[in-house]
Structure formats: C-alpha cells, structure tokens
C-alpha cells in the first residue's frame, strides 16, 4: 500500500476509533492501538506512540469545553496529577523492557477490564459531610451545577485516590493510553466524587499524564510523523462527533453494543500476543 492510500484509510479508521472512544467513554486512543496492530500489522511501538499523541489531542480539545462547564474539579486534578505523572514516567520506562507480545497481552487485559468498568453498575454516593482532613485542608470540596442550582459535594479518601492514580499513570505510560477508566474509578468509587465531576476531571488530567511519557516516546522514536498525522486528525474529528451523538437519548444502548466490540478487540490482542504474532 502506498503512503497516500494508507494515510486515507488510517484517517477514516481513526475517525471511527475516536467516535467509538467518545461514545464508550474510553477515549479514542484505546481503540487506535488494536486497530493499527490487528488490521494494519503496525508495530505496537509505533501504534502506542500515535495513540499517546491522539490521547493528548482529545484531552485538550474536550477539556477546553468541560472546564468552562463548571464540572471539572481543578484542585483535585492538580493534586492527583502529581501521582499520575510519576507513574507515567515509570510506565514509559517499563514499555522498553517488555517485548511486543507481552505489551499486546497487557493491552488486551487492560482494554477488557476498562470495557467492564464502564458498564458495571455504580454505587450511588451518600452525601455525608467531610471525612478526610487533607481534603478540607487543601480545599478540595466543591459544588457542581445541576438543574436546581449548585450541588455541594465532599472529597473522601484522598490517599487512596492518589495510589490508584499512580497505577493509572504507569498503565498510561506503558500502553500509550489515557487510563481514563481507571482515573474515573479512583475519583468516582474511591474518592466518592460525583460521576460527571470524575469524568471531566479525568479528561483534564489525561493530557498531562500522557505528556509526561511523550518525551520518552519521542526520544525512542515511537512517534512517527507519517503515522501520527492521519491518526491525530482522525481521532480529533471522530471524538468530536461522538461527543455530539452522546447527548442523544439512545446513548446507553449504543454504549453496550460498542463495549462488546471493544471486548472482542481485547480478546484478539491477547490471542495474537500469546501466539507471538504481535
């Protein structure tokens, strides 16, 4: 295949990946790597490099809109960022130690787990007042806009949230993804923040987490201009379109269907990795 044909096909594939990523809430990058490695037999290091850059692009693009919406908890994001950044650098270092097959297997497992996480039922949070002294001291508690005015919420278990964020950072740096589902898990389930606050704050943090490993990927040559170009532009367009559709009513059924697609991709990654074909 020549460069022009390849770029056009990858561009349209990336639009689809960005669209799927936005609908499932997993982010476009998560689907880019299986798409490039399974269909185009792209070396997984090039694939995670392109994916990481598309993750930064979608994070910045979407966060610009969310931050103004009043849901994002800036202070929580700035605190947890410290944990993800150190995790990400360690993850990027680890990526060079693993063979492509091992990376593919780990990728498949993380992908399957993320697809499961976005679909499992969430415990409703009980508003019970402040329980964590450090959250009070750092003024992390905030309020989010709802139809009937501002809803006050408290942030709990800051230390627990930080530890999950280190893991999210390591996985992000290792696999070139945003680790959005793990970040949401940390804020939604461990720190018991409102779901919408958790997802928008996670989205804001993803850019910084990914930027931390981007320098290491760049020096190692994981980021190839010819591959990154159609991927970044496609994912940006796709995730923008996906976010628009998400506002529609049937989003829940769509999410279920696409989660199955992602689960199948995950099994493929594990299978090919075990065969040593990636």
């Amino acid at each position: 295949m020549n460069v022009l044909d390849f770029s056009v096909v990858v561009f349209f594939g990336s639009i689809a990946a960005g669209f799927l990523g936005a609908l499932t809430g997993l982010g476009g990058g998560v689907i880019i790597t299986p798409f490039l490695t399974l269909i185009f037999h792209v070396d997984i290091r090039y694939a995670i490099g392109a994916s990481l850059i598309s993750v930064i692009a979608t994070s910045s693009g979407a966060a610009a809109a969310y931050v103004r919406g009043g849901f994002t908890n800036l202070r929580v994001g700035m605190l947890l960022q410290v944990a993800t950044v150190f995790g990400a650098i360690y993850g990027a270092y680890l990526a060079a130690q693993f063979s492509s097959s091992v990376l593919a297997i780990v990728f498949g497992l993380v992908l399957a787990f993320s697809a499961y996480l976005t679909n499992c039922p969430r415990d409703p949070h009980v508003d019970d007042g402040p329980t964590d002294a450090s959250a009070v001291r750092l003024k992390l508690d905030n309020a989010y806009p709802a139809e009937d005015g501002l809803h006050k919420y408290y942030v709990h278990n800051v230390a627990g949230g930080c530890s999950v964020m280190v893991a999210a950072g390591v996985i992000s740096g290792l696999l070139g993804i945003g680790s959005g589902s793990l970040k949401v898990l940390a804020m939604d389930q461990v720190m018991r923040m409102p779901f919408k606050v958790a997802t928008t704050t996670s989205n804001l943090m993803i850019g910084v987490t990914a930027a931390a490993s981007a320098g290491i990927y760049l020096t190692r040559g994981y980021i190839d201009a010819g591959l990154v170009m159609p991927v970044v532009l496609g994912v940006l367009i796709g995730s923008y379109a996906g976010a628009k559709v998400l506002i529609g009513a049937k989003a829940k059924t769509l999410r279920r269907v696409f989660s199955i697609v992602i689960f199948v991709l995950a099994l493929q990654m594990i299978y090919k990795g075990l065969q040593g074909k990636i």
Binding site: M1, N2, V3, L4, D5, F6, S7, L36, F40, H41, V42, D43, R45, Y46, G49, R220, G221, Y222, I223, D224, A225, G226, L227, M229
Partner: peptide, 17 residues
Amino acid sequence: FLSRHGTAIADYREFHG
C-alpha cells in the same frame, strides 16, 4: 508530506524508529 511522499510504500511492520 503526502504531496511529496504519497507514492512511497507505507511500511510500519518493522520498528526502526
């Protein structure tokens, strides 16, 4: 890039980054 190298062969199977 595409106007200059569009007809070259795309090959990302082997890593030489």
